[in-house]
Amino acid sequence: MRELPHGDTVTIVRPGEPTQDAYGNDVPGAPTEIPVPGCGVSPRDGTGAGANELTDARDTVFSGLTIYAPYGTDIRATDRVRVGGDLYDVVGLPGSFRSPFTGSTGPVVAALELVTG
């Protein structure tokens, strides 16, 4: 799959190599930002609404998206993805498909989750 001509640009935010603080503790390094143009973005969950609320002394909203990135895009379970102004966690392992019959490729599909509250 090539870039979708009317797709959105999302940004993969990959954790940087760990460094050590003054006490010898590992701390996360500066993240790397990787723009990915031509992605499809859609709401995700069973109802199509894209969000679930859990209320237990406060309102927590889980909002989900699915992104369809061009084949070969390197998205990892440890990445975060910026869509619009929001930063989502990758849920599980992204997947992709290449047909053994035709060699045609599909998108890299990743589930994303944004937790607020």
Rank of each mutant, 00 (worst) to 15 (best):
N25I: 01
D26Q: 07
D26M: 05
D26G: 00
D26V: 00
V27R: 01
V27I: 15
P28C: 04
G29H: 03
G29Y: 04
A30D: 14
A30K: 04
P31N: 03
P31L: 02
P31Y: 00
P31A: 02
P31E: 01
T32I: 15
T32S: 10
T32G: 02
T32R: 14
E33Y: 05
E33A: 07
E33W: 04
I34S: 13
I34Y: 10
I34Q: 12
P35W: 08
P35K: 06
P35C: 06
V36C: 08
P37E: 14
P37K: 03
P37N: 09
G38I: 05
G38Y: 07
C39Y: 07
C39K: 06
G40T: 00
G40I: 00
G40L: 03
V41W: 05
V41M: 09
V41F: 09
V41Y: 07
S42P: 00
S42T: 13
S42H: 01
S42R: 14
S42I: 02
P43N: 05
R44P: 08
R44E: 15
D45Y: 00
D45G: 12
G46I: 02
G46H: 04
T47M: 11
T47A: 15
T47N: 13
T47V: 02
T47G: 14
G48N: 09
G48W: 06
A49R: 14
A49M: 10
G50D: 13
A51S: 14
A51D: 11
N52G: 10
N52L: 10
N52Q: 13
E53C: 03
L54M: 08
L54E: 10
L54C: 02
T55P: 01
T55M: 07
T55I: 12
A57Y: 09
R58H: 09
R58I: 03
R58M: 06
D59S: 10
D59H: 08
D59N: 06
D59I: 02
